[in-house]
Simulated scan of single mutants.
Amino acid sequence: MHDFTTLTTLAVTVFMGFFAMMNPIANTAVFVGMTASKSPQKTRAIAFKALFCAFCIVAAFSLLGKGIFSLFGITLPALRLAGGILVFLVGYHMLQGNQSKIHTSQQATKVAIQNEEDEGDIAISPLALPILAGPGTLATAMNYSASGDITHIFITIGAFAILCGITFVCFLTGPKLVEKIGEGGISIITRLMGLILTVIGMQMLIQGVHDAIQLYVPVGS
């Protein structure tokens, strides 16, 4: 049985981890730049398809995480160590006021803005991958669901679904939101999210080292 307080704490932790990684406010600015020449109907279609694809990708990794580990012989400590490093690097770049190249594809974004692609192409790449469901987001999802506990898996998927809903609203109100917050506000939010991510990454690293010691170091040695 899971304690309600423990589950609530886990849900908040997972949500904040996803929120910091996806950074809906900063991604809204990217989305507005990519869809500036689109009609409201196409903009809505792009936002929905991008977020739906991102949700499906994260849900798949959350559900299949344990199977992927078994297939490739990956241990949970290895995921937490690698994921911790990855999340820490993303957070470090954001803390400097930059979007990490690990998490987003600036070149892909430039190509999408320069070329008038249809909404399906833009929604899937670069929006869904790698901007919304990048390596950092997938590592975060697998870290919280990799134990195989069905409760943890559902909490992870549910938290990401809520975040997708929030991001969808941000995308639809993008121009007004970006105008009100301004570049300075977006920069401050990005740095705050970066700080949260560096702490989450370090916690994943600490947990990974702890788990690795318990797994590989004989008791009493």
Score class of each variant (00 low, 15 high):
residue 2 H to W: 14
residue 3 D to Y: 04
residue 6 T to N: 10
residue 10 L to A: 09
residue 10 L to W: 05
residue 11 A to C: 07
residue 13 T to D: 09
residue 14 V to R: 03
residue 14 V to Q: 02
residue 14 V to N: 02
residue 15 F to H: 01
residue 20 A to V: 06
residue 20 A to K: 02
residue 22 M to R: 07
residue 23 N to L: 00
residue 25 I to K: 00
residue 25 I to A: 13
residue 27 N to I: 10
residue 28 T to W: 07
residue 28 T to E: 04
residue 31 F to R: 11
residue 31 F to I: 02
residue 33 G to P: 03
residue 33 G to V: 06
residue 34 M to H: 06
residue 34 M to N: 00
residue 35 T to I: 08
residue 37 S to M: 08
residue 43 T to H: 01
residue 44 R to F: 04
residue 51 L to E: 00
residue 51 L to D: 03
residue 55 F to H: 03
residue 55 F to P: 00
residue 57 I to H: 01
residue 57 I to C: 02
residue 57 I to W: 02
residue 58 V to Y: 02
residue 59 A to C: 08
residue 59 A to L: 00
residue 59 A to S: 00
residue 62 S to D: 00
residue 62 S to K: 01
residue 66 K to W: 04
residue 67 G to R: 01
residue 72 F to E: 01
residue 74 I to K: 04
residue 75 T to M: 09
residue 75 T to K: 07
residue 78 A to K: 01
residue 79 L to W: 07
residue 80 R to P: 03
residue 80 R to G: 10
residue 81 L to N: 02
residue 82 A to S: 12
residue 83 G to Y: 04
residue 84 G to T: 04
residue 88 F to T: 01
residue 90 V to A: 06
residue 91 G to W: 08
residue 92 Y to R: 15
residue 94 M to E: 08
residue 96 Q to K: 15
residue 97 G to P: 01
residue 97 G to H: 05
residue 98 N to L: 12
residue 99 Q to C: 08
residue 100 S to T: 06
residue 103 H to D: 14
residue 106 Q to K: 15
residue 109 T to I: 15
residue 110 K to C: 05
residue 111 V to W: 12
residue 111 V to Y: 14
residue 112 A to S: 15
residue 113 I to H: 12
residue 114 Q to C: 09
residue 114 Q to A: 15
residue 115 N to G: 12
residue 116 E to V: 07
residue 118 D to R: 09
residue 118 D to I: 04
residue 118 D to G: 13
residue 119 E to H: 15
residue 119 E to Q: 12
residue 121 D to W: 15
residue 124 I to P: 12
residue 125 S to G: 14
residue 125 S to H: 14
residue 128 A to W: 10
residue 128 A to Y: 09
residue 128 A to T: 06
residue 128 A to V: 00
residue 131 I to E: 12
residue 135 P to F: 00
residue 137 T to Q: 09
residue 141 A to H: 11
residue 141 A to V: 05
residue 142 M to C: 11
residue 142 M to T: 13
residue 143 N to A: 15
residue 146 A to D: 10
residue 147 S to K: 11
residue 149 D to A: 10
residue 151 T to F: 13
residue 151 T to K: 11
residue 154 F to L: 15
residue 156 T to R: 13
residue 156 T to L: 09
residue 156 T to P: 13
residue 158 G to F: 08
residue 160 F to I: 09
residue 161 A to N: 09
residue 165 G to F: 03
residue 165 G to C: 07
residue 165 G to P: 03
residue 168 F to I: 06
residue 169 V to E: 10
residue 170 C to M: 14
residue 170 C to W: 10
residue 172 L to E: 08
residue 172 L to N: 11
residue 174 G to V: 07
residue 178 V to M: 07
residue 179 E to F: 07
residue 182 G to R: 04
residue 183 E to Q: 15
residue 184 G to N: 12
residue 184 G to V: 10
residue 185 G to Q: 00
residue 186 I to G: 00
residue 187 S to R: 13
residue 188 I to L: 14
residue 189 I to K: 02
residue 192 L to M: 08
residue 194 G to D: 08
residue 195 L to Y: 01
residue 198 T to N: 06
residue 199 V to D: 03
residue 201 G to L: 06
residue 202 M to N: 04
residue 205 L to V: 06
residue 207 Q to A: 14
residue 207 Q to Y: 07
residue 208 G to Y: 05
residue 209 V to T: 03
residue 209 V to W: 01
residue 209 V to Q: 01
residue 214 Q to I: 11
residue 215 L to T: 14
residue 215 L to I: 04
residue 217 V to F: 13
